[in-house]
Nucleic acid binder design. Structure first.
Lengths: 250, 250
DNA sequence: CGTTTCCAATGCTATATAGCAATGCGAAAA
DNA sequence: TTTTCGCATTGCTATATAGCATTGGAAACG
């Protein structure tokens, strides 16, 4: 072994088992943005400045900033500086119905149509990555805006994985919320197929519309942060009462 | 000035004005993936291995890999290695109709319903960031699959910016293609609003369906790579003939 | 034969440093 | 007054190195 360069001896990872330094820097900046101290367009401290302030090396400060740039929180302009990114319209945002209503300042109401365990939905089991004959939790709810029905949503999940989910009071609370709070499942994204269909007799009755009326159909396979297909949902939305916003890239 | 540490003297950026080393490494890996030598799931060389092979430092090799991971080309598993990512289904892909058909191995046909300049579409001019009374190019086309009409698409653009676009043979060629080839406009992404409506008499006639049939409506504002709103398009798609695939994130 | 333990390989965080490259502003020149 | 040029600031690429954390298989053990 040849002698170590002296600088390397100094200190190696100040406080292990804590949050990494570069994430602490990110959090500090994020907090300042959330608090309104840093507004879109404002410059954030430069790499060299952050390194001094947080007493880290330049590379570490740099790591913090370039990852935030990748996430779209800040924008970096070579030679000019790093700036808080403008707030982007939230496209492709995955929200439960309750959350969507909340973001509009409304309260979500639902009427549970059916809730239980089924075993014969082979195709859906397959989409969830389960054996064809698996026990599936199934929940059908009519979504209400005010007292008008606007959608029918049917959700499926592995019944054995989330045992008592069918007993939850899902007419009051959000399915997403229960999954996250009670089962510790963080939902990350969903792959969706969107098309138009028209209402059959049952849908017409439930949504109090004419048979044959136009409906937006959204079939979504919802994945957890671990990349596991967790919930399969099919929703039928009354025309004019629901608009999906997405951004598509070339 | 205090003496430089000897290692720093060695060599500083081998061949400037060329591709950065970390990108060369990325390209080398990408080429091997494209050539089929590396298949999804296969391990790519480790950081340390790449550093040796390409004669770069560990940090540089690491930079190459972690950026590729961010781009979804490879997946990294702590302690296990770096692996070629499985080919992902293309969600949120912005394609013109011709391109969509081509990707299905079909040929696109269109029938131009109308094509010209209008001045009275104030709301649409506003969406394109133009003065309310601006001259707008407007193109209405019925999209055909085989000889069956499946959609009506209406496009708008700034007539003064793309002068002779209304004269192009747009029943044969792709609008996207003309914009890119003739005008050098690269389209980057579109923000879309998606809902369901039903066919009025005109749509029913054009699409050869019953009045009142369900249609998927997609309104899209298409941006260039420079972030400029370039085209506004409204499409009505026959139910069952068109499925939109998107991925939404939480 | 199954279980546990250990270890090499690999990725992750971090330090210290160097020079290049783009930006933008102020001073000097036209 | 306008234009040009230089320079400080800031981001980008790169080097060399150290130790921690996770994984998975091989070896040791029961």
């Amino acid at each position: 072994m040849r002698p170590l360069p002296e600088f390397a001896v100094k200190r190696t990872m100040p406080n292990r088992s804590e949050e990494p330094a570069y994430k602490q820097i990110q959090n500090a900046i994020r907090r300042r943005i959330d608090a309104g101290q840093l507004k879109p367009g404002n410059p954030v401290p430069s790499e060299r400045e952050l390194a001094r302030l947080h007493k880290v090396s330049l590379m570490t400060a740099r790591h913090a900033l370039s990852e935030m740039a990748r996430d779209g929180v800040v924008e970096r302009r070579h030679g000019a500086g790093t700036f808080v990114a403008p707030p982007r319209v939230q496209f492709n945002k995955l929200l439960g119905y309750s959350e969507q209503m909340a973001s509009l300042g409304l309260t979500a109401h639902s009427r549970v149509i059916s809730c239980g365990v089924v075993t014969r939905e082979h195709e859906i089991a397959a989409r969830l990555g389960l054996a064809p004959t698996s026990r599936l939790g199934k929940l059908e709810r009519v979504r209400l805006a005010g007292d008008e029905p606007v959608a029918l949503e049917t959700c499926y999940w592995a019944a054995d994985e989330f045992p008592k989910l069918v007993d939850a009071p899902l007419d009051h609370v959000s399915l997403f919320g229960v999954l996250e709070r009670e089962f510790g499942v963080e939902l990350a994204y969903s792959d969706e197929e969107i098309d138009a269909t028209d209402a059959d007799q049952r849908l017409a009755d439930l949504l109090e519309i004419q048979r044959g009326s136009s409906l937006l159909r959204i079939r979504q396979l919802i994945f957890s942060t671990k990349g596991r297909a967790t919930v399969y949902a099919v929703g039928f939305y009354r025309s004019g009462r629901h608009t999906l916003r997405v951004r598509r890239f070339r």
